[in-house]
Design a protein around this nucleic acid. Structure first.
Lengths: 176, 176
DNA sequence: ATATAATCATTCGTACCCAAACGAAATATA
DNA sequence: TATATTTCGTTTGGGTACGAATGATTATAT
């Protein structure tokens, strides 16, 4: 799967190079641009590809997939935790759950002790869905990393975890 | 800015570990999950942080920022190219341009030779906006990479470029 | 020259997305 | 035991987000 260690550096896309030149001209260029904006470009492409070639046939949006993914991994969850883990606002979740329930993938249940709360339960159809959809989606992930060397692969896993950790802490400081 | 070379491997978040265990239990775990889903989590956090702490005060959505960014870097552009470079559908761009024009950041001009086409021009107010907004946004990018070692930094730039290139080619094969 | 086809941006319908306002229910205070 | 206060999910309103249909304009064929 992984390539051997020696490899030349990949060239920047024309968009990346154009942006760099412009930023230099206005005195705002910094190297972190190359990491973060390429991360955005990459996730954007993977997302739209998955939406078109995997999720569409199951009447699933990307966010619908993420919500189902969280339910699949964590099991029954209250809406507040579900929204947080899925990275969306709880008001957004309401609409997504309506869509998911319509297709029978999950259902809202009353909380046994607290009539304000709602527990979301993944249905049998939802579990069967996720086994099919995730394995198809995962094929795309495998394609995305298929040209990385072993060293790049391992280092990039570490880097993304580190950046994620840094931003989560940075984010929490502003909300406390 | 960059850290020295020696560093321990960062731990996976509880969400990543939980997901891994579940995927192993259903026989669907692959290592690429750790890269791509963490990339999604990272960009999602950066995006929402920037929306809340940078873009909001300028009446700018994330997509509005990206559209302005493309105009800023490339100069006047026809709508089709603008949408493609911004990574959104043409029909989406129409609504975003209405919002951006309302705030005076850009304007639509008639194409000199072809009455069907529309050229989007960045206004003076738009350029001044971008110098302010981009430098603030860029501070977030710098925070995100601030805990990477020099080696991680350089390798991750290469990895992201390679993955981007792989996915762009993969994407083009399906559309030809 | 006139009909047909290709090519534009926009509109439409449906779904997502958030913050703020809302109403119901649980808890704290008196 | 009233009555605030807090804590829930949902609704609302403005703004994306997409594919498909639309209508206007240009290019091409006959």
């Amino acid at each position: 799967m992984d390539k051997p260690v020696n490899k030349s550096h990949p060239k920047a896309t024309s968009a990346e190079e154009k942006a760099k030149q412009h930023l230099i001209s206005v005195g705002l260029y910094g190297r972190s641009v190359s990491i973060i904006s390429n991360a955005f470009r990459l996730t954007s492409i993977i997302r739209s590809y998955a939406e078109k070639h995997v999720f569409k046939e199951f009447n699933l949006s990307f966010s619908g997939f993420v919500v189902m993914w969280v339910l699949w991994v964590w099991g029954d969850l209250e809406t507040a935790k579900l929204a947080k883990n899925a990275g969306i606002a709880k008001s957004t979740l309401t609409g997504i759950l309506i869509t998911l329930e319509k297709h029978g993938y999950c259902q809202r249940l009353a909380h046994p002790n607290d009539a304000r709360r709602v527990v979301v339960h993944i249905n049998k159809a939802g579990e069967e869905l996720m086994e099919k959809v995730f394995s198809k989606y995962h094929e795309i992930e495998d394609v995305a990393v298929s040209d990385l060397t072993s060293d790049e692969f391992e280092t990039t896993i570490d880097s993304l975890r580190t950046m994620l950790h840094t931003m989560e802490e940075f984010n929490n400081k502003g909300n406390s």
